[in-house]
Simulated assay, not measured.
Amino acid sequence: MVVGALVVVVVLIAAPKYVWIGIGGAVCVVVVIGAIAVGVSVYQDRSSAKAKRERQQQAVQSAAEKKKQERRERRERQRRVKDLGARNADLTESALAAVKQIAESEAAVAGWLGDVDFTADIRSITQSFSKAHALRKVAGELSALDDPSDDDRKILAEAEATAADLERAAVQRVELIGRCATEAQLIDESLRDERDDARTAEQRAELHAKLRGMLYGIESAPDVAPADSTADAVMARVQAYREIKNQIQQARDGR
């Protein structure tokens, strides 16, 4: 191995100048290519790390926004329960969900439902439930007192009837909004069915036109059957063979 190395060194020393220039150029090219490869690798690693950091930041931000939204919803829920009562809060939230469903429906976006601003309806529902809840709260405090009088019983009955009327009117409005959401969903389904029917009709027309063209082409084209059909020839030979065989058999039977 040492001798081989010495031979290589001697050959290189004895090599002409242009050989050294070529070797130097090749070395430079290799160095440049290596530097470019290293640079590309470093750039890719940095880009990948940057993208990973951005994804992590987005995930953290999304999680934080989700927690904020959940806290807002919990506070809003607690406020409704306090102001309206648990049952009335549920009904109000169902009306709000129905309003959102209506507003996001294709029927509303396309203008089939006209004005879909239910602000006044939600305000009326909330106020009615709030008044009914407040009446029942004060009535409960009065009914908790000892030795109720006739006036107590009379005003308690009036408060209960008024609260019931308020809640009844609010519940009817909640149910009406729910029916609006149902109707909006039905219109959306009808619109989707109409689009499906239109696509089917278009496809049917295209296929009819294609089939008519194919049939016209086949009918107007000259007969493409070969003059000397191999299949016909084979069947003719089969028939001839059977006839000959039949004649031979008849001759044998006649002897």
Rank of each mutant, 00 (worst) to 15 (best):
K52W: 08
E54N: 11
Q56E: 14
Q58C: 00
A59V: 07
V60L: 14
V60N: 07
Q61H: 08
S62M: 08
A64S: 12
K68N: 02
E70K: 12
E70Q: 11
E70L: 03
E73W: 00
E73A: 09
E76L: 07
E76S: 09
R77I: 02
R77T: 04
Q78Y: 05
V81P: 02
V81Y: 01
K82E: 01
K82R: 06
K82H: 07
D83H: 13
D83G: 02
G85S: 02
A86M: 01
N88F: 01
L91K: 05
T92H: 08
E93P: 02
S94E: 04
S94R: 03
S94K: 00
A95R: 03
L96T: 06
A97W: 02
V99Q: 02
K100D: 09
Q101E: 14
Q101W: 04
E104H: 12
E106I: 03
E106K: 10
A107V: 00
A108D: 09
A110D: 13
G111V: 12
W112V: 04
D117T: 09
A120S: 13
A120M: 07
D121H: 12
D121V: 06
D121Q: 11
I122L: 15
T126V: 13
Q127Y: 09
F129A: 00
S130T: 14
H133Y: 10
A134Q: 13
R136E: 11
K137R: 11
V138I: 14
A139C: 10
A139K: 07
G140Y: 09
E141P: 03
E141D: 06
L142N: 10
S143V: 05
D146C: 13
D147N: 15
P148F: 12
P148Q: 11
D150M: 13
D151G: 14
K154R: 15
L156D: 11
A157M: 11
A157L: 10
A157F: 03
A161D: 07
A163S: 15
A164S: 11
R168N: 15
R168H: 11
A170R: 08
A170Q: 02
V174Q: 03
E175N: 15
L176P: 00
I177L: 01
I177Y: 05
R179V: 05
C180T: 07
C180I: 01
E183N: 13
E183A: 14
Q185F: 05
I187A: 13
D188Q: 03
D188A: 07
D188V: 04
E189P: 00
L191E: 06
D193E: 15
R195L: 08
R195F: 00
